[in-house]
């Protein structure tokens, strides 16, 4: 509203000039996104209806057989199930782990606060490949975890940790935690401290305050962080490839294999759209369930 008022106050001539030229500033960026993201996606989508032939590579067609193959092939259904399971577990665990740190970071008045924020952002910035390399050194047969367990006499043989689902869970949770922490932190910062104090003064213990006041109020942050992290987990590539080994297949590596190993483009294209659609559907379902619960709780609380 304030903007409208100031614009109106300007001389008419200048305003007209600004209006005619301004939107054209969008042209370069929009062209780049249309030409190198939208157009390639359209091409890939079209290819997903083509027919694959080992001899002729790809035949122009309009068939749904690639999508049908996915839903009738137990192997690929299994890959999607693994992906969804990994994403769901990692989202929940990272939520549980992130909350305490996010809370302390939101509430601290220490002068180290900005250093803490940067320290959380930093691992996120060094890249997934670098972090996977670190986990390989930690979890390998000669890694630090096995070394510690052997020297403490907990085990007598090195335990296989690398190339297991466990390693993938650890790796992915470490990758997504910073996103969850930062999202939760910004939402908790927006919740007034006085609300917590009011609850405490009315006799609520810390657990009750958390469950009845803090958690419901921070639910938007939980939803936002959960959505972001779930999407990242569904699309994980480097971590499952490097820490899970060839036996452990998630959607993103399976999709990549279709283009490099089997060169079945139509099926690979179908995988890409199945991955994006299932992520979208699951995110919408999860968000709706959570926000309905939030709404429900509000109604429940109102008459009291």
């Amino acid at each position: 509203m304030a903007t409208a008022a100031t614009t109106a106050a300007r001389p008419a001539g200048r305003r007209a000039e600004a209006f005619s030229l301004g939107p054209f500033l969008l042209v370069p960026a929009s062209l780049l996104v249309v030409a190198f993201l939208a157009a390639p996606l359209v091409v890939l989508f079209r290819y997903s209806f083509n027919r694959y032939s080992p001899r002729e590579f790809m035949i122009d067609a309009f068939t749904l057989e690639n999508y049908a193959r996915f839903f009738t092939d137990a192997y690929f259904i299994g890959v999607l199930a693994t992906t969804v399971q990994v994403a769901a577990v990692c989202t929940l665990v990272s939520l549980l782990f992130a909350y305490p740190l996010a809370y302390l970071m939101a509430r601290t008045e220490s002068r180290w606060k900005s250093a803490l924020v940067i320290a959380v952002v930093f691992p996120l910035m060094v890249g997934n490949v670098v972090r996977a390399a670190g986990w390989m050194a930690v979890l390998g047969n000669e890694g630090i975890v096995n070394h510690l367990m052997l020297s403490l006499g907990i085990v007598s043989q090195p335990v296989r940790l690398m190339y297991t689902p466990f390693a993938v869970y650890v790796g992915i949770i470490a990758v997504v935690l910073p996103y969850m922490i930062l999202t939760l932190q910004s939402v908790i910062e927006g919740i007034g401290r006085d609300v917590e104090e009011a609850a405490a003064n009315l006799g609520a213990g810390p657990m009750t305050t958390f469950r009845r006041v803090l958690l419901p109020l921070s639910l938007p942050g939980v939803i936002a962080g959960g959505t972001l992290v779930f999407i990242l987990c569904m699309n994980a590539y480097a971590t499952p490839v490097l820490l899970g080994g060839p036996q452990f297949k998630m959607m993103a590596p399976a999709l990549y294999d279709q283009f490099t190993r089997t060169t079945n483009w139509p099926f690979g294209a179908a995988l890409a759209f199945i991955l994006m659609t299932s992520t979208l559907v699951l995110t919408i379902v999860g968000t709706t369930v959570l926000s309905r619960r939030m709404h429900h709780r509000k109604l429940e609380a109102a008459p009291r």
């Binding site: 969008l26 960026a29 929009s30 996104v33 249309v34 190198f36 993201l37 939208a38 157009a39 390639p40 996606l41 091409v43 890939l44 290819y47 999407i231 569904m234 699309n235 590539y237 993103a252 999709l255 990549y256 283009f259 483009w265 690979g268 294209a269 890409a272 991955l275 994006m276 992520t279």
Partner: peptide, 21 residues
């Protein structure tokens, strides 16, 4: 929405679509 779009598309999907394109 268009300019924020690349954030929504998974990297691996954007990569393969650019490859075929």
């Amino acid at each position: 929405t268009l300019l924020l779009g690349p954030l929504v598309v998974p990297g691996i999907v954007a990569g393969t679509s650019l490859y075929v394109y």
